[in-house]
Every structure is written in C-alpha cells, then in structure tokens.
Design a protein around this nucleic acid. Structure first.
Length: 284
DNA sequence: CCGACAACCTGTGAGC
DNA sequence: TGCTCACAGGTTGTCG
C-alpha cells in the first residue's frame, strides 16, 4: 500500500489510538523484512500512544518519551483499525495485533516486505532513517535551488534517483512516473543534465502530485474503490502509470513502457523528450 | 562514493 | 479447469 500518500493517509487514520493504552500485543508471524523484536509485546503492553509521526514511508508511533513503535508497510502492508465491538476473525496474513482500550489494530502484509520494529530518539540517527532524503511536503528546504545542487552530483537517470529515496523520500514508482510526465521530462535523462528550470518544475510537480493523492485518500492501490463503488483517483488521473499502449492523454501517442532498475517506467515518447521542451534542459 | 543488480515473499492475472 | 510464468506499491545489501 505504500507510497508516501498512502502512508500519510494511514497515519491520519490511526488518530483514534492516540491517548489509548495498549492492553495486549500478539505477534502471529515475526518473520517480516526483519524479525520482529521478541520483546515487542512485553515492551509495549500497558503503554500509551502519545503521537504518530511519519518519516518517509516509516510510521513512528511514539509511546513514552523518546520511544517509538516503527512500522513500514513495504509493498503490501496495511494497518486496519477495528472497534472492539466489531472485530472480524483473524485474516490470512494478519501478523501483529494490538488491542487498545476501545479499538483493535492489525498489521496485515501478504508479501512480508514490511517491518515492525522499536526505535528510540534521536530518530535522525536510526540506521533506517539516517540515510533518508528530504521530506518533500513538510521540509521548506525542498526547493528547486536545493534540488538542482543535489542532482548535479549524480549522473543516474532522474527516475532512478527519485525512486532511490536518498535525495527525496516518498516518491515511489507511480508518483515518479506521474511527476516526470507532468514536468515533460524523460525518465532517462541523467540527473546532472536537468536544468535549473527543470529542477524547479519537478519539485513543484512532486509536491502537487503527492498533495493531490493525499487529498484523494491515497488511492495508488489497484484494488482501491470508494465506498460507493466508484473507481478511485488511481484509474481516473494517471497519465502514464500502467497505461502502456494506451494513447497519451495529451498527444494521443501510445504510452511506452521500459524497465529501469528492475522497475517499470511508463512515459510518452512524444511529450517527454528534450527535443520537445528544450528550454527545460541544460545546454550540454 | 557511485551505480548496477539480486534478494526478500505472496498473490494475481495472462497465456497456453 | 489447471498449470507456469511474469510482474506488483519498496528498500537493503553486496558487488564491481
């Protein structure tokens, strides 16, 4: 379920547990990306969740001062919240369950690429967090100026760099494809060849795409539907993602698909070239 | 340090 | 109907 918007929507949805005491914790499957700490249940039982933060795609549930329950959804993880009066039977791939005073929280993850760990302050020094790039929506330093300076040091294709998360976090495969299309940038352009103008435009589009997706409820899920059964933002607003062979919504040219770093890249060969929008690229 | 690649694991859909 | 294969939202670790 995992690009930044989905994680942020999950974070917002967990608000009901803030202030509630954890009555019990059960781990049904401890083999996730990393083994769940054996003392997770005894450590958390009786504690109260004070706050829920997000760093990149990591959720940080603060209990006690300076202590956190760190959750990553990986490729297929989900957190579901139930009223204690209406808890359904345990489902396949429900790996962890937290029973609060009034609600029950379950972590479900078919592919088990996610993680449930414990962390302490200072979070910035945590091994999994210290290498993360800048926050695209909340860090005021994420500007065209800053981005341009960062990209100068890398000759990797811009799409690969976006996905890497070392420069900017939260931009997964879907939103990397979409933000590059909206900026009319080829995903294959070496990062250090992006002009200042292109960097500024890309920063703006990343912010817009992520913000729109959060507002739409974080719908980059194949199975996402609104409660009324209508298809979500996923199907209706994607310009390129998953649209190989279908006409570009701007110029009708069939969308192409290629593979970069073992990930599918979708692009319009007409709109996303440096010959169409030369002003967006550096002279060299 | 940078960049390319394999790996982790299960479900789903396409093709035969 | 049932089998096999390719592919899927992410990130780390290893190697050159």
């Amino acid at each position: 379920m995992p690009e930044l918007p989905e994680v942020e929507v999950t974070r917002l949805g967990l608000a009901p547990i803030i202030g509630q005491k954890i009555e019990s914790v059960t781990v049904y499957q401890n083999q996730l990306r990393w083994e769940i700490p054996p003392h997770l249940a005894t450590t958390l039982t009786g504690q109260c969740i004070n706050d829920i933060q997000r760093r990149g795609k990591y959720l940080l549930l603060q209990w006690c001062e300076h202590n956190y329950l760190m959750i990553h959804l990986g490729m297929s993880g989900r957190l579901r919240l139930y009223s204690r009066q209406t808890v359904p039977p345990l489902a396949v791939h429900d790996h962890v369950e937290w029973i609060f005073e009034h609600v029950v929280l379950r972590y479900n993850d078919p592919r088990r690429f996610g993680a449930v760990l414990l962390a302490q302050d200072p979070l910035a020094l945590h091994p999994l967090l210290k290498t993360l790039g800048i926050e695209p929506l909340s860090d005021p330093n994420f500007t065209g100026d800053w981005f341009y300076e960062q990209l100068k040091r890398h000759k990797t294709a811009i799409k690969t760099l976006l996905l890497g998360g070392k420069i900017v976090v939260g931009v997964g495969n879907i939103y990397a494809n979409e933000s590059l299309f909206r900026t009319r940038l080829s995903p294959f352009t070496p990062a250090n060849q992006l002009s200042y103008a292109a960097c500024t435009a890309l920063v703006d589009e990343i912010k817009v795409v992520l913000t729109e997706a959060i507002a739409a409820g974080g719908s980059s899920l194949k199975d996402f539907e609104h409660s009324n059964g209508e298809k979500g933002w996923f199907q209706q607003h994607y310009f390129v993602y998953g649209r190989e062979h279908q006409p570009c919504r701007i110029c009708q040219t069939p969308i192409h698909m290629a593979v970069q770093q073992q990930r599918a890249t979708f692009f319009c060969p007409h709109c996303q070239t440096d010959t169409i929008q030369p002003s967006l690229f550096a002279q060299t």
